[in-house]
Amino acid sequence: MIRAGIRAILEMTPGFEVVAEAGDGREAVELAREHRPDVAVLDVRMPRLDGLSATRELRRALPGTAVVILTTFGEDEYIVRALDGGATGFLLKSGDPRELLTGIRAAADGAAYLSPKVARRVIERLGRTAPHQDTATAAEQVAALTAREREVLALVGAGLSNAEIGRRLHLVEGTVKAHVSAILTGLGVRNRVQAAVLAHKAGIVTEN
């Protein structure tokens, strides 16, 4: 039912094309290898191969395919693990359909997207598993960035792509990429998702 609902939403929206639908994680990987989609949407819990394992396989085999993970409130611990697997989007199954579209668009554009509710749960989870990385520490790390880098980081946390950030801040995309690279280095994180989590934890992300 969830797959049917997602497919219906995407097929009714201009700019989206559903190229395949899988019944389990192993089939999802095989179909992705065949069709090479821009984005693969995976549930955390799937038969034969779970979403975390499927994410790792997809990212190794198809680095050009972004992965968006669907989760429930009870599965926030999996989201932290999925960060290391290379997922770039995290959405709630029960979320607003517009959020689904936003998250998939962001992933296709190379951006990270955390559903606001998911972001809060991830931050809480990170706080329990890494208590030294508290809100104050995150704020201190972010404060060490330049004013422009903090502006860019806030928009990364809001799920905007480099092109969207450029339009918002009146910068060319190459300049945004340079800022993002400097931000990742300055914060000591490996990817945009981890930077987005830190932005949320520091409290600099506002509603679009």
Rank of each mutant, 00 (worst) to 15 (best):
A61G: 09
T146P: 06
F90W: 11
I165Q: 07
G64T: 12
V39A: 01
E21D: 02
D134A: 13
R98D: 10
E99V: 14
R190V: 02
E75Y: 00
A8L: 11
H132E: 15
A202P: 04
E140D: 12
I2V: 14
G89Y: 05
T71I: 03
R125G: 08
G103L: 14
T72H: 08
E17M: 09
L126S: 14
A107D: 08
M46P: 04
V39T: 05
G5P: 00
R3T: 11
A112C: 09
E17H: 11
N162L: 10
I69F: 08
L198T: 07
V176S: 11
A66G: 13
P131V: 15
G95F: 01
V180M: 05
P63L: 07
R59D: 00
L145A: 11
V172P: 03
G188M: 06
S115Q: 14
A138N: 15
V18R: 02
S115I: 07
R81A: 13
T71P: 00
P37K: 05
R56D: 05
V189L: 04
R36M: 04
A61Q: 14
E77C: 03
G203T: 03
V118L: 09
A178I: 03
E99T: 15
L145T: 14
R59A: 01
K177T: 05
A40Q: 03
A143R: 08
L155H: 10
R59W: 01
P116I: 00
R26M: 11
T102F: 10
R167L: 11
L198M: 12
D76W: 10
N208F: 07
R33F: 07
V152T: 08
R36D: 01
P47R: 05
G23L: 12
V80C: 14
Y113S: 08
G51C: 01
F73A: 11
A143K: 14
P14S: 00
L70Q: 14
V41C: 14
P14Y: 00
